[in-house]
Design a protein around this nucleic acid. Structure first.
Lengths: 129, 129
DNA sequence: TCCATCTTTCAACTACTCGTGAAACGTTGA
DNA sequence: TCAACGTTTCACGAGTAGTTGAAAGATGGA
């Protein structure tokens, strides 16, 4: 992933409402949520939400599609994962002490890799079992 | 890790010079580097560097210690790891598709956990155990 | 076509961040 | 004490992000 893209993603994530937004959308997967429902869920005005959604979409962290009069937003899991991967691998050179802090996440990752559950769209089966 | 701390860390990382700084310091571990050498390495003015270092230290991503007339800066691996862990676990709920993007990093993490190579310096104080 | 609904864009303002250069501070050695 | 060095702080100006409310654009149903 490009460095400039990562910087955009970090800047986009460095805002309370936008972090909430990602947190809201990730578990919903491809289904996503329309702008109006997101605004209600997060207590944001329509214009402010649109501003934040635009920032996240430009940063490659979410995607949008039009369905009837609604615009559905969903998390771009590859974009989010790519950003984190850059930080872990390219920036921290997979430093063991940094990775150790992500231990449970790492275990879940390996599980998903091993069982091929990644990309099925379903939430993590046993998380940090 | 606190949410506000994560937001500070993300804002701190969302700047080219500061991302370079972390990238420079992580491989050096506890040894770190003094401010003057960092300034030369990154081509920054002393005042600019001091500003950026302060932002990173406030965000809990680096640490400083005075040695004679030098100030040595080193990466706070637990702080960096904690930030990434928050994003992976609390924000993305360990979503398998996100974790899959960090596959190699995850493998390395598991390896370090399994072999106990993590904590080359000292065990991370506030990481998740 | 008209109206209601959903979403985005715009203008204006405030507040913050960034970068520069000068000055101040703390430490070391003579 | 003094001078030299390493680092931080300050004041200033420029640029950018964030918020708000109103208006505009897009869509669907009557």
């Amino acid at each position: 992933m490009e460095r400039s893209k990562v910087l955009m993603a970090l800047a986009a994530l460095a805002h309370e409402s936008r972090l909430d937004l990602v947190r809201l959308l990730v578990p919903l997967g491809e289904d996503g949520l329309n702008a109006g429902d997101i605004a209600r869920a997060l207590g944001l005005s329509a214009s402010r939400l649109s501003f934040h959604l635009s920032a996240l979409e430009q940063a490659g962290l979410i995607r949008s599609r039009r369905v009837s009069r609604h615009v559905i937003y969903s998390a771009d899991l590859a974009g989010i994962g790519g950003t984190l991967s850059y930080l872990l691998a390219d920036c921290c050179m997979d430093h063991p002490e940094v990775l150790a802090c992500c231990g449970s996440a790492a275990r879940a990752a390996l599980h998903s890799v091993a069982t091929g559950t990644a990309g099925t769209g379903q939430p993590h089966p046993d998380g940090q079992g």
